[in-house]
Design a binder for these strands. Structure first.
Lengths: 248, 248
DNA sequence: CGAAGGCTTGATAGACCTCAAACACAGTGG
DNA sequence: CCACTGTGTTTGAGGTCTATCAAGCCTTCG
């Protein structure tokens, strides 16, 4: 557990929050003071489990994290993907018991931030409280958008929409430029996020490839025709509430 | 626009927040000081629209409100139902532009609360800020639960789950006791919430009726066999994060 | 080189959708 | 008081999107 005063994690976190809000120098300094307890995980490991009562938040440093819940018959629903700089369990600040789990999809590193110190920062710096609250609200907006996909979009639309969302988020975070990003997840995991079977995900991906809407090989995704893919997914990034200058 | 200092709306709001958190007498007094601008709406009217930049929050006083979004091909996805005492657009405190709409399903009355006064209350009373934040987080948890339904549950499971959720929420709010509540919405609206066609909603409702899991007539729903319906919907109220003493 | 995991393909089945029409009921107007 | 209209519910008959089952293939890695 590394607790040096300033670490790469702080910069990731600040960069993330600056995608959605403005931070004063003082607020950034406070964020840099947050203690980070770094942990490494392999692929497909749980970080927090449904029923847990965590006393820390999870800041993603590297890798690819998801929220998920397993239903009684064994099926899994993935409810969100999280990239470096994001805090998937920020809600645990005010919801004591986890109603779902958090797990890695690939080997990942995270930093644990004690609730106490986050609460203290939020109490003393309203701008930080607002930024964090806003972040959880954007999470909620993203859930709503996924609900629309699950309820009303075709498999093709859902996949296109998700691939668009991820590019926009990767770019806003400065984790990629251009039209390409690493998508290190399996088709089964895509299916679990989109409410589809692996087989069907595979078929639709092939269709999108055949139409040259995407290029996907070896865990790297490219979107050569952004126009066409956004249209296929009816994608409008408004729900991400990213500051305009951070949008492509 | 009625702005008397204390109105029924204040009690509804306090009762709602007390379902999910503890409030001090002082905090309740502050909440009672919030100005409420009462408005009446007919059925199927928009209260706030996607793209709006509201300067108030909407407190439901009576009726039945929903969040929804219409997708390009005309289909509608309802993303939540809201009962008296609830504030469906609390997120507008920190997300300036609405990414979805809010509308009535039946004739309803609401109270508009200016953002300014809510921000002031939250700034000066951390307990109020925490309660409101928590409320938005429970909203998000509910979206996640609906995602599970849309992605991984059968039509039967989805319907059963929703009917269970509504009973628990009605009871927690003190709007009903026992196993019965008013469900004044059409089967088409149920379908829009559950990602199903009207026809299919109808058939599944008949099935549930035939098995005596529900009694539904004239906009009044009864759940004679709670055990069986929760099982059919795999319903576990944990995600609602209601205080234990307010659960049935 | 064998095993394991992921991807791909084919065939079949089922849950749910769409279209279409009949039915029930409440409100309206003559 | 009774047609008339409109909305919501119900029923029937295909049709389709997506799931399931099963197997083969490919790549990676110990």
């Amino acid at each position: 557990m590394n607790e040096a005063r300033t670490q790469p994690g702080h910069d990731l976190l600040i960069r993330k929050l600056e995608c959605i809000t403005d931070l004063s120098d003082e607020e950034k300094e406070v964020l840099r003071g947050l203690p980070l307890g770094v942990r490494s995980f392999g692929a497909d490991q749980d970080i927090v489990r449904e029923g847990d009562r965590p006393s820390t938040c999870t800041l993603v440093l590297s890798g690819f994290i998801c929220r998920y819940k397993v239903v009684p018959d064994g099926k899994r629903q993935i409810m969100g993907f999280y990239l470096p700089g994001e805090i998937p369990d920020l809600q645990s600040l005010h919801l004591q018991v986890m109603d779902h789990s958090l797990g890695t999809l690939v080997p990942s590193t995270i930093a644990l931030i004690p609730h106490d110190s986050v609460h203290a920062a939020a109490r003393n710096y309203p701008g930080i409280a607002a930024a964090l609250w806003r972040d959880t609200l954007i999470d909620a907006a993203t859930f709503r958008e996924w609900m629309i996909g699950l309820g009303r979009r075709s498999a093709r639309g859902r996949i296109a929409h998700l691939l668009c969302e991820l590019l926009v988020r990767f770019r806003a975070l400065g984790l990629t430029s251009g039209e390409t990003y690493e998508l290190p997840i399996t088709q089964a995991e895509l299916g679990d996020a989109l409410g589809l079977s692996t087989v069907h995900v595979n078929r639709v991906l092939q269709e999108l490839r055949a139409e040259n809407l995407i290029v996907l090989r070896g865990g790297v995704l490219s979107i050569p025709d952004w126009e066409a893919l956004t249209e296929a997914g009816e994608f409008d990034p408004a729900y991400l509430h990213i500051k305009p200058e951070r949008l492509p």
